[in-house]
Structure formats: structure tokens, C-alpha cells
């Protein structure tokens, strides 16, 4: 099986205008080599300005690489842009593919005609997407009147309308509420199962990565700093999850729960926080261990902050 994305020494520099006429060069993507196979789901993460968007633009043919080669769906993105556009769907979190003053359904109709979908396929696919993403209520509403969550679902549908082999999502859940995030993730999992779509996404939300991706690429200053499974990522950086419990009554600090580190207490010990290693212990095991020592009223799990994970990857790779 040939890879769906293959980059070889991919490099992109930008000329920055400094003071006066002097120019400095900034390397946004630096000697990047990786492959993604069909059907994979890959998280592409890094700090702001690490080169994520630049990479995506090169994958779609918007930017020409300064050096190296890139092949997407077996095509050369810049030269075969038109062919490639039929096989890739992209969601840019910040830029809309919809027509802001037109109803959602009209945007879909135009996009279907842009991708030359046969009438029957257009109808079936639109219905499928409207159904899965629960958009029926606002199909006739102009895009500019949608809430952020509604708009993002419409954007994702717009990118997936032509059933692309590869879907690239740039910050798809940014700014969404918990419920909208949840719904979008479930949809993407579903879509992969049903159509075998390859997924590549950038995100600032560790939850996206955990629910959606088997593999993670971390970029740092345009270089690949990590390529492996999410478990491997946690191992590398020792990312810890945090269990927060509300106890039934004020309790002295529970410092001796096995496999966890006590982080702190509040309200005279009514709320306590424990860090535990995701590789060693499941959340259920950690909870059970705490429950043996005190009665638990409520709990929540805090996922490791992606910025924090990235920072640790950067630190360990240097």
C-alpha cells in the first residue's frame, strides 16, 4: 500500500522584511520527513508558529516548498492541484469555505456542483452528513447567523461533502463547547469507520488527540520532534493525568495512595488532587485506590495540557 502523504526533507523558508531593506530568512518547516498510510489517524501538534499551518499549506499545494519533496494522495500538490482537490478535504479553523450570506444548504449545493457530484450521490451524502452532525434545524439559516459550534459542523460537512480519501483538519474544535466537541469527535470516529478516511489534524486539545488519533507527530521549530503512538508520547514525556475528587467529609491529605502523587488539598481536605501515570494506572484503578481510604462524592479527570506535553517533548528532544 503506497502512503497517502509522503514528505522527504520538506523545507520552507520565508523572507522577512527587517529594518530598512535588510531581509532575514525564517525557516518555518525544516527538513521534515514522514509518511502517513491510508486509513491512519494522525495528530499533528506543536506550539504556535511551529510550522503546522505551513506544512498543511504545502500538502495542499497552496505553498511551494523551498526544498524537499511532498506527495499527497500520490500526486504532486502544486502541479496536480486540481486533481488533488477532488481527493482531499480541508477544514481551516479560521477560514470559511462557506458563503457567509447564503443558507447552509445552498453552500452545500454549490460545493456539490464544484466537485461535480452526481445528483443521487449529492443527495445521499448531504443527508448522511446532515443526519450525523444534526444540522437539519439550521440548514436554511444564513451562515453568518450560526453559532460557532453550528458553523464548525457545517464547515466539516463542506470539507467532507465530496467524500475525500484524506481529511485535514486545522484546529477543528477550537472555541467549541464541550458538547459540540464531543459530537464532532464522535462523527469523525464514525466517518473513519464507515469510509476508511485518512485523518490528519492539528489541535491544541489533548482530548482530540486521545479520542481520534492513534499516532502523533510533534513539530518543534519546523523539525519533527516526535513520531509515534499516543502511549509512546506519554511515556516519553511522562505526561500525567490528574484525578480530582470531592470527598464526603474533611479528610487529612491522602499522601499514601499507591501509584499516585498527592498534589494538594482544598477546603480542609474536602477536595484533593492526585497525579498518576497514564501508562501505569487507569483512572478506574486510581479511583478505586482513593475510595478505599475515603468516601468519594464526585470526581473529575484532568487531561495533560497539550502545551505542557509539547514543551516536554521539546525539552527531551534537545
Amino acid at each position: 500500500m503506497s502512503p497517502i502523504i509522503e514528505t522527504q526533507g520538506l523545507t520552507r523558508e520565508f523572507a522577512l522584511r527587517g529594518r530598512g531593506l535588510r531581509r532575514t530568512r525564517l525557516t518555518a518547516v525544516d527538513d521534515l520527513t514522514f509518511t502517513i498510510d491510508p486509513g491512519e489517524a494522525v495528530g499533528y501538534i506543536g506550539a504556535n508558529g511551529a510550522g503546522k499551518s505551513t506544512t498543511i499549506k504545502m500538502l495542499c499545494g497552496i505553498l511551494v516548498p523551498t526544498n524537499g519533496t511532498v506527495s499527497t494522495c500520490g500526486l504532486r500538490p502544486v502541479e496536480d492541484r486540481v486533481k488533488l482537490a477532488r481527493r482531499v478535504g480541508v477544514v481551516f479553523g479560521q477560514r470559511s469555505q462557506l458563503w457567509w450570506d447564503l443558507p447552509v444548504e445552498e453552500s452545500f449545493r454549490i460545493l456539490a456542483s464544484i466537485h461535480r457530484l452526481p445528483k443521487t450521490q449529492e443527495k445521499a451524502r448531504t443527508e448522511e452528513l446532515v443526519d450525523c452532525l444534526e444540522m437539519a434545524d439550521y440548514l436554511a439559516t444564513p451562515v453568518r447567523q450560526l453559532s460557532l459550534g453550528q458553523r464548525m459542523r457545517a464547515e466539516v460537512s463542506a470539507a467532507l461533502l465530496h467524500s475525500p480519501d484524506l481529511v485535514i483538519l486545522d484546529e477543528p474544535t477550537i472555541g467549541l463547547d464541550v458538547l459540540s466537541k464531543q459530537r464532532l469527535r464522535e462523527f469523525l470516529v464514525d466517518e473513519r469507520e464507515r469510509h476508511g478516511t485518512t485523518l490528519m489534524l492539528t489541535t491544541h486539545d489533548m482530548g482530540d488527540i486521545e479520542r481520534l488519533c492513534e499516532r502523533v507527530l510533534v513539530v518543534d521549530h519546523g523539525r519533527l520532534a516526535f513520531d509515534g503512538t499516543i502511549g509512546g508520547l506519554s511515556r516519553t514525556v511522562g505526561a500525567q493525568r490528574v484525578l480530582v475528587v470531592d470527598l464526603a467529609e474533611p479528610t487529612p491529605d491522602l499522601v499514601d495512595v499507591p501509584g499516585t502523587t498527592h498534589l494538594g488539598s482544598e477546603s480542609r481536605g474536602l477536595q484533593q488532587r492526585f497525579a498518576f501515570d497514564a501508562e501505569q494506572l487507569t483512572a478506574a484503578q486510581a479511583l478505586a485506590a482513593v475510595s478505599q481510604r475515603a468516601e468519594v462524592r464526585d470526581l473529575s479527570i484532568e487531561e495533560p495540557d497539550i502545551e505542557d506535553v509539547v514543551r516536554r517533548v521539546y525539552a527531551s528532544s534537545r
Partner: peptide, 14 residues
């Protein structure tokens, strides 16, 4: 500025 041009690149037309 609005990124509309980038969106044009994602569509199979000149």
C-alpha cells in the same frame, strides 16, 4: 487576508 484565496486552492477549478 480573509483566507478566501487559500480556500480557492482546495477546489478543483483554476
Amino acid at each position: 487576508r480573509a483566507g478566501t484565496l487559500d480556500v480557492f486552492y482546495l477546489r478543483p477549478q483554476p
